[in-house]
Design a protein around this nucleic acid. Structure first.
Length: 564
RNA sequence: GCGCCCGUAGCUCAGCUGGACAGAGCAUCGGACUUCUAAUCCGAGAGUCACAGGUUCGAAUCCUGUCGGGCGUGCCA
């Protein structure tokens, strides 16, 4: 077994095969067998069917039209022109309408295990990002109440995406934008102040537009518990002013705690209010005005979004003199872009998607390249309990909070469930299902595989199976064993795809597939037996599986239990 | 009305830059534990990929239109 630093060598099998085919094409071109002008990109893919080999290319079909030959004939010429490929491949065939199928040699598969042994949990990670700085902004819940279920999805997706990009060699920062400014903060403060007074026996009417939720009373109770009724003596206005600060900090702490329970730690908590206080908002508007994208009308200040193909212009400063949320957001994005990130990613709920156009228009008006900012729009979450929708109303404050969900379901299942679906799909979250410790629950399926492997390894070690010396991987030759190795070998590709798509959900699918491949191997192959060589090889395979499983779960932010 | 997302097996969903007879989990039915964790495994049935055109050697995938669903379309955030 070669000791070459070969994670690259492994990951490059695809490139290697492409190169071999390219060389074959050049040779055929030179000999005049294939009259082609230019050699196109050669695509390599995993055939859906196992019977079609490990890799396949459709290049012959692509070229068939140009050279006016049947695809299979083109494929024949390519195969004949291939150099020595025996060290990589056990078989090459032409199949179907003109595919060229490649079958990897076992030797090559064994190398995957050796690479995993050397690389450990770094196996599959890459330097694709070349250290580029990426800022991911997500959750950014309003600090006027507890987070709801939807925020949980963005927390899981944002955090995992950050992990994915980190594993791919990007330099990632997580940021939470705090909307601690504007009218909602005033309403919030007023709500708390009135509940405070009511709880202390005053007969005050709760306003129509106040926040109804029970948590407002909780905050008021907390203030009473800590500071008593001392705020009753001051004026209503003063009380609200003080409470705005007091209650807001309390909610912010609460948000942080909840997110920590989700396993999410932000690098930066960015305050909207700070943007106003530092006149960054004014400056941003001024800059836009200098560039000719701002005008005054009907007493308000407008941004000329229509200059960038938008349907209508948008207000930056209202007729009453108050800046809009949009104005602050422009300043915020200007700030983000000025911090020198190669890319900024925003994760927004589908209810904000109408906002994308104007935000893009604004960044363009500030002369930032359009591709510097990526906006991921996530569809919303439907909460179910035993198949029945859970009714929620923001108005009445009747809703299931993320805290309650975490308490009831637990972090691992919450994260896994939130990550299972593409963000383009609305997500049905069934509390009963997530809680079930049964085969209906994919979280436990994956975790069980990890616990099972751990158990086997404990047993094997106790039985004296020794991996310290050279392991003869050639002992592994049955289908369940080789399939498991192939699945392990897919991990770098899965991570690469998740990175490219900026989407975590391929990882949960892969975790399940890998667990499945292991469970199958386990039922077919006894790890610890009298055959020392075989035992060592199979234990090594188990160990490699555990390593990759851990790595995947770590990126998902889900624990990998040793026992279950 | 317009914009974005979606429409794939009974249910929930994958399907990456178009490729070889459409996949997974759950549910249903039938099997497998004296041996390293049965929270497991094996097998079976189940789909005109919403519909109609088009591009292509080839379309669930790309284009156009129709129907159905979600979200948005504020001087709210």
């Amino acid at each position: 077994m070669s000791k070459i630093k070969s994670d690259r060598r492994y990951k490059m099998i695809k490139e290697k095969l492409s190169l071999l085919v390219k060389e074959a094409l050049e040779k055929a071109q030179l000999k005049g067998e294939l009259p082609i002008e230019e050699i196109p990109e050669i695509a390599m893919e995993h055939p859906r069917e196992k019977a079609h080999g490990d890799w396949a290319t459709n290049i012959a079909m692509i070229l068939a039209g140009e050279v006016k030959m049947p695809p299979r004939a083109v494929a024949q010429i390519i195969v004949m022109s291939l150099g020595d490929v025996r060290k990589y491949l056990s078989k090459i065939e032409i199949a179907g309408p003109g595919f060229i199928n490649f079958y990897l040699s076992n030797e090559w598969l064994y190398e995957v295990l050796e690479v995993i042994r050397q690389e450990g949990e770094k196996f599959g990670h890459s330097q694709a990002g070349r250290g580029k700085r990426v800022l991911i902004e997500f959750v950014s819940a309003n600090p006027v109440g507890p987070m709801h279920i939807g925020h949980g999805r963005w927390a899981a997706v944002g955090d995992t995406l950050a992990n994915v990009l980190t594993a791919s060699g990007y330099n990632v920062e997580r940021e939470f934008y705090i909307n601690d400014f504007g009218n909602q903060m005033n309403i919030f403060a007023k709500s708390v102040a009135i509940r405070y007074a009511q709880l202390l026996g005053l007969d005050v009417l709760f306003p129509e537009d106040g926040y109804q939720g029970e948590y407002i009373k909780d905050i008021a109770r907390e203030i009473i518990a800590k500071e008593g009724d001392k705020y009753l003596d001051i004026s209503k206005e003063q009380r609200e002013l003080i409470f705005k600060e007091r209650a807001y900090l309390q909610v912010l702490e609460h948000l942080k705690r909840t997110l920590e329970k989700m396993g999410v730690i932000f690098d930066t908590w960015f305050s909207e209010r700070a943007l106003h206080e530092s006149s960054a908002v004014d400056k941003a508007i001024e800059e836009l005005r200098e560039r000719g994208f701002v005008y005054d009308s009907e007493g308000a200040v407008w941004f000329k979004a229509t200059a960038f193909g938008e349907e209508k212009d948008r207000v930056l400063i209202r007729a009453n003199g108050e800046p809009t949320y949009f104005a602050a957001d422009i300043a915020y994005h200007k700030n983000k872009l000025e911090r020198g990130f190669n890319e900024i990613i925003n994760i927004w709920g589908a209810d904000h998607h109408g906002y994308i156009g104007r935000m893009r228009a604004a960044t363009q008006a500030l002369r930032y390249p359009a591709d510097r900012m990526e906006i991921i729009i996530g569809q919303l979450v439907n909460l179910l309990r035993g198949g029945e929708p859970v009714r929620m109303s923001k108005r009445t404050g009747e809703m299931v909070t993320l805290d309650e969900l975490l308490a009831e379901v637990g972090r691992d299942a919450v994260r896994f469930f939130f990550l299972m679906r593409s963000t383009d799909s609305p997500l049905d979250f069934d509390i009963e299902l997530a809680k079930q410790e049964s085969n209906e629950n994919p979280v436990y399926y994956v975790q069980y595989a990890h616990a099972r492997i751990s158990s086997i390894i404990r047993f094997a070690e106790a039985e004296g199976v020794d991996l310290s010396g050279r392991v003869d991987y050639r002992q592994l030759e049955t289908e369940p064993e080789l399939d498991l190795i192939r699945k392990l070998g897919e991990w770098p590709e899965v991570l690469e795809r998740a990175t490219r798509q900026r989407a975590p959900h391929p990882l949960t699918a892969y975790a399940q597939e890998l667990a499945s491949a292991f469970h199958y191997f386990y039922t077919k192959c006894r790890v610890v037996s009298e055959n020392k060589e075989l035992s060592a090889a199979r234990m090594s395979l188990s160990e490699a599986t555990r390593t990759v499983l851990r790595s995947v779960l770590a990126i998902l932010g889900v624990s990998a239990p040793e026992r279950m």
